[in-house]
Nucleic acid binder design. Structure first.
Lengths: 236, 236
DNA sequence: TGTTATAAGTGGGTAGTCCAGTTAAAAGGA
DNA sequence: TCCTTTTAACTGGACTACCCACTTATAACA
């Protein structure tokens, strides 16, 4: 018997996801009044307590504000930037801010990774890169769906042996996933970005700081120009 | 009547705080089994649903794992680094990692702030600095208690007009608060750090990038040496 | 028309129940 | 005595029904 059969999804999680989806698809907008608990329990066919649990976690994230007697309202973007912005699709500047931040931080990460990466870090990076490079089309499609390429960046941050940097990177990557940035990238471009990882890895392995930084910078520049220069509607 | 009387603390929040406090004070350690819902409702004198709501938010934060039929367990540090590490007091390297990350990021923040800060950003920074500089002892003590000095750094990040950088800074500052870093700093040292802010502000106002970066770096170096060099037990 | 009662609605919280899975203790067999 | 099996207690997941204080919109009144 498995020691970790913990994967049972709870009902409240389903409700949370549904609500967050409605925010993502802009069926709910900042400041909007949400349906009452009583209405929601009918809508989702769950008990009131499940609805309340769902709202507790949204509340603690700062996504929703509850006014006793007065209903619940979707927070505004200024109430809690991170959680909110990541739910709303692409406002002006959002992505360019994201990329700018990554450019700055990842350069530092690359430098520290060159200095501090150990054998096991390098091996982990290698296995991630190989997973993506030598794969048939079917697997590749699956990996792309799962944003498996982004793991490289987290592993790189891990190689700095600084938990804070890893945490910051994780947050950024999570943000990229929520934003569905891959929708802006076609298959060929995506493969190109994956191949960049190999070069970066080599530079880190050689402890060539300048090269690693240059490559990371180029990598993110590519990402930037792919996302920002092209017309979204003409893709995918 | 106020439009925002939202400050009613909810019971579940109290429970969440109590549990997090127990983690901070190491009455609860990673992997520990928590009391059952039934026991907890007696302990805190609230209904079972309040306990469950509290656990839902801890669960969604990754601090607690629930096993239906098997009880609840405190997560380990690896399960969700940020949330966990910030609850446990000072492990080896935690603080130095934190400071290293801040050093890197804040240098970039200072640079961008110099370039992009507008009048209103400068004014906000000024009001924060003034609040701390020209104050009687009583007020100062209160401000220190509330970590009011740290607002400067968030406002500085805000001056970059990059929401992601502000978010990252906010996370770091929140982390510093949770860690109670001020306990390692005596009053004189704290005042010194506050005064640094004034100089940094001036450099930003003058758009003197090199100076701003140098000052921020010095500021964080001071912080570092205060915290890491001294014997904790001999202070405060 | 403008104010004031009034009723409906809302989130906050409690209590009690049922269920399926886990866990540990008691019973049984070797 | 030791190991297996059965049983009973416990645990989290979920539901239902109820009460409260506060908000809000409606209706009654001046």
């Amino acid at each position: 018997m498995g020691l970790y059969p913990v994967k049972n999804t709870r009902l409240y999680e389903v409700v949370v996801n549904r609500i967050e989806d409605m925010i993502k698809t802009e069926k709910l907008k900042p400041g909007d009044k949400l349906p009452s608990e009583r209405d929601m329990m009918e809508l989702y066919n769950v008990s009131r307590s499940v609805i309340r649990e769902a709202f507790r976690v949204l509340e603690s994230k700062g996504v929703v504000k509850s006014r006793p007697g007065g209903g619940r309202y979707l927070a505004t973007t200024t109430d809690h930037p991170m959680e909110m912005v990541s739910l709303y699709n692409i406002e002006y500047g959002t992505i360019s801010d994201f990329i700018e931040a990554r450019e700055l931080i990842e350069a530092d990460v690359a430098r520290l990774a060159c200095i501090r990466a150990e054998r096991k870090d390098i091996n982990r990076l290698k296995s991630i890169v190989n997973d993506l490079i030598y794969r048939d089309n079917l697997k590749l499609k699956e990996y792309r769906e799962k944003d498996k390429d982004l793991e490289f960046h987290i592993a790189l941050a891990e190689a700095t042996h600084n938990f804070m940097l890893k945490e910051i990177m994780t947050i950024q990557i999570q943000f990229a996933k929520n934003l569905n940035i891959k929708n802006y990238i076609n298959e060929k471009e995506w493969l190109g970005l994956c191949e960049d990882h190999m070069d970066i890895l080599r530079a880190v392995e050689d402890k060539n700081i300048d090269k690693a930084q240059a490559l990371i910078k180029k990598h993110i520049e590519s990402l930037k120009s792919i996302i920002l220069s092209e017309d979204i509607s003409s893709r995918n």
